[in-house]
């Protein structure tokens, strides 16, 4: 589904990713772990099309298409969902109206009918249940007045509304308390399907205890330096990253 080949990325002429290669297939969950500054969030930003990041080498294909040539909204319409580490706070924009516009943008791109406010309220209510977020999220402003943990859960609500094929979740577990983490895990598990892929970027094993990954990768110095199964995450949890850097 997603093929990242020898990807090199710089910001302000400073190289961050230096030849990252990763293949993600349908139905798979991949976890990417790594020390601070290793390039994890840069990968998210590039897949999201952030203009501040310059691709200096390699490429990214998604379902056979060159992802990097698509506008951000085209990536969304194609089925890519990117959740940033720090979701932006947009005061004055109602969460429910934003979600309806996002739903309709996707419907329009697919040539499907758009929904009115009343019909969308029923859809949203159902997705709030599957995303396992509090019902009052519908009445909030977009990430405004929400705690860090609530913003992360609001991202998961967006994911459940948009139903992408590929979801990249950047540190969705950070800033989330223990009870909410269980709900985050359940929300991601509810999203898992044979035709969908998920990339979890995380610092902590605790999320991976809830959402069992098929593959775990270590991103260090701008490239994937180690790949394995969930036992790799267990070792990183015990021993940190030093043993990888010494290899």
């Amino acid at each position: 589904m997603l093929a990242i080949t020898d990807l090199a990325v710089a910001i302000n002429d400073q190289p961050i990713l230096k030849g990252l290669t990763l293949a993600v297939g349908a139905g798979q969950v991949h976890a990417i772990m790594g020390p601070n500054g290793s390039g994890k969030s840069t990968l998210t930003k590039v897949i999201g099309g952030h203009p501040a990041y310059t691709v200096t080498g390699g490429g990214v294909t998604y379902q056979g298409r060159d992802l990097l040539t698509l506008a951000p909204e085209e990536r969304s319409h194609a089925g890519v969902f990117v959740s940033f580490q720090y979701p932006v706070d947009v005061p004055g924009v109602a969460n429910s109206e934003f979600l309806r516009l996002a739903w309709n943008a996707k419907a329009k791109a697919k040539g499907q009918p758009e929904v009115n406010v009343k019909d969308f309220a029923a859809i949203l209510s159902e997705r709030i249940a599957t995303a396992q977020v509090p019902p009052e999220f519908a009445d909030k402003q977009l990430n405004h007045g929400m705690s860090g943990g609530q913003k992360k859960r609001n991202e998961l609500l967006q994911m459940h509304v948009l139903e992408p094929q590929l979801a990249i979740l950047d540190e969705t577990d950070s800033g989330v308390d223990v009870d909410a983490l269980n709900a985050v895990g359940a929300s991601i598990n509810a999203f898992r399907r044979a035709d969908r892929a998920i990339i979890l970027i995380t610092h902590y094993r605790r999320l991976l205890d809830l959402v069992k990954p098929d593959h775990v990768h270590v991103l260090s110095g701008g490239r994937i330096t180690q790949s394995g199964d969930v036992t790799l995450a267990e070792r990183l949890d015990r021993e940190g990253y030093g043993w990888i850097d010494r290899r």
Binding site: V82, P87, V90, A102, A105, Q158
Partner: peptide, 13 residues
């Protein structure tokens, strides 16, 4: 710019 990107990544032109 970040707010614009965020909304566009959710599908809004």
């Amino acid at each position: 710019e970040d707010e614009m990107l965020y909304l566009r990544l959710r599908g809004l032109d």
